[in-house]
Design a protein around this nucleic acid. Structure first.
Lengths: 113, 113
DNA sequence: CGGCTAACATAGAGAGACTATGTTATGCGG
DNA sequence: CCGCATAACATAGTCTCTCTATGTTAGCCG
């Protein structure tokens, strides 16, 4: 295993959720935000991030426009669309559904000892 | 996506945990137990199950011996080894670590409104 | 002005669960 | 008793998804 820390299938959700907080970020900031908010546990590599952003743009979940950072560097700023917001809701619901199912296996209903 | 319901990376943990409950099961029973305990949300396909069991035997996490079911069919009965139990602990710890990191992103610490 | 780094980008690798298919053997209905 | 369904195991190949490795452009700074 390439020591992956982002569980497969969760990256889109994490990105969408991050954009839902900040309403407008460029790629680097998204990765930084995810790493920081997760106490450095979740580290999105650039090779995962940019393809994901492009996929999601094609899906219509976010829009992008070129701008400049405070330091004057060019950067693409991403925003959630309405469809992106709906998708986020769907993914969270699904994620929690499965998480709870796993929790039931890890901690099965126990009788009193 | 092939509608996968078992999140990649969690299958071994689920199998180990299921065997930790029942101490001895054959393949079909393991799959049934996982499906049942998860309210039919997690459905392990046979094409995932058997290769996983063999990988885990090679790892030394479980042992198997041939026997017969109540209906007289041949079946391989699997048991956890001590190493399997240790592995289970490790995987659960790791899973919860990452789950909590994701939860922090989904539900970031909020200030009072 | 040359190296460092921010920021974006893409190709290929690797892991892991799935689909599809096959095999053996038991039980059952006609 | 024969054929069909099903239990139980098994394997090959596919697909998805993230990562590694690599490359490019453009500002900043000594």
């Amino acid at each position: 295993m390439p020591k992956s820390e982002i569980p497969p299938g969760t990256l889109d959700m994490l990105i969408l959720r991050t954009l839902a907080h900040h309403r407008e970020l460029h790629g680097f900031e998204i990765a930084e935000s995810i790493r920081h908010t997760s106490s450095s546990i979740l580290n999105v590599e650039e090779g995962s991030l940019y393809p994901a952003l492009q996929r999601m743009m094609v899906q219509g979940w976010l829009t992008a426009e070129w701008g400049h950072t405070d330091q004057g560097r060019r950067a693409r700023y991403y925003k959630l669309t309405a469809a992106g917001r709906r998708q986020l809701t769907r993914e969270i619901k699904d994620y929690e559904r499965v998480s709870m199912a796993i929790a039931q296996i890890l901690n099965p209903p126990r009788f009193a000892t």
